[in-house]
Design a protein around this nucleic acid. Structure first.
Length: 269
DNA sequence: CCCCATGTTCGACA
DNA sequence: GTGTCGAACATGGG
């Protein structure tokens, strides 16, 4: 499920326990989500620490315990985090952090494409440093987007928008929403998109990131029907602009939904 | 049984 | 080295 805005929503789920102390840890040892983690160190290290901070960058999250314990969480395709009232928990609750209050910070992920990281360090771990600017931030410039397109001139623009080093947080539905608003055919090579269209793309990129954070990232509200979002999932969906049928086909290796008449821009050939 | 899935990574190839 | 593409990862839902 999770892209930028959904991850932002999940980030907030543990916040009610901010300032509380960890009582004990339980893990589903050996699961793929712990592939980069020393699980013994995590269980031993986190106990007794105070939950201090919850941050997000793109689709990644970082939770700090005490001054030196950094817990990284990526939700993959099916990950969720939430608070449970008591420990005995579900089959896919791979990480359960029970607090002194009895509440349990829980990480769930049936498909296990998600990933946990754990670092103890006086300084910010390398995986949480020097991250590329998010498209919704002030640091994200038109020049930067241009460079991303020029580094991947032959790839379909849809595929380029999904590269996390270039567009952190953008996922499959957001990429489709961005291209629909900019009226660009998702299969168009990034390199053939002209300067004027790039300006439009820059605007819709930032707009979709901001809209998504505001509408879904806050309370997971249902987006307006004027977005592509509500129409893209099922067969038979209609374009909110043209009222004509949407198309769904794999582009850039992912299921892509677009409105053929509306998204006619294919660049210079 | 079949096909599909809002993500990332790795190997092959040009 | 760089860029692009497809397969693989593991599980559940329709």
């Amino acid at each position: 499920m999770p892209e930028l805005a959904e991850v932002e929503y999940y980030r907030k789920q543990w916040l009610p326990c901010l300032g509380e102390k960890v009582a004990s840890i339980a893990v589903n040892r050996g699961k793929r989500v712990f592939r980069e983690v020393d699980v013994d160190a995590l269980c031993a290290g986190l106990s007794g620490q105070v939950f201090q901070a919850a941050e997000r960058h793109g689709k990644q999250m970082c939770f700090r315990f005490g001054q030196r314990h950094y817990l990284g969480v990526h939700l993959g395709m099916t990950g969720k985090i939430r608070i449970k009232e008591e420990y005995p928990s579900g089959k896919h609750d791979h990480l359960c952090i029970t607090m002194k209050s009895g509440k349990v910070l829980t990480f769930t992920d049936p498909r296990m494409f998600g990933r946990i990281r754990y670092t103890v360090s006086a300084s910010v771990p390398d995986w949480w440093q020097d991250l590329p600017p998010e498209p919704s931030s002030d640091a994200y410039t038109f020049d930067r987007m241009n460079r991303s397109l020029d580094r991947h001139t032959k790839a379909p623009i849809k595929a380029v928008l999904l590269i996390q080093d270039e567009f952190p947080g953008v996922g499959n539905w957001m990429a489709d929403e961005i291209l629909w608003r900019a009226r660009i055919y998702p299969g168009a090579s990034a390199g053939v998109i002209g300067p004027r269209k790039r300006r439009e793309l820059y605007r819709t990129l930032r707009e979709v990131c901001e809209d998504a954070l505001r509408v879904i990232g806050t309370n997971w509200n249902r987006p307006p029907d004027a977005w592509l979002f509500n129409h893209r999932w099922k067969d038979g969906g209609l374009c909110p602009e043209t009222k004509r049928p949407l198309r769904r086909e794999p582009i850039g290796g992912r299921t892509t939904c677009w409105s053929p008449k509306w998204q006619h821009y294919r660049g210079k050939s």
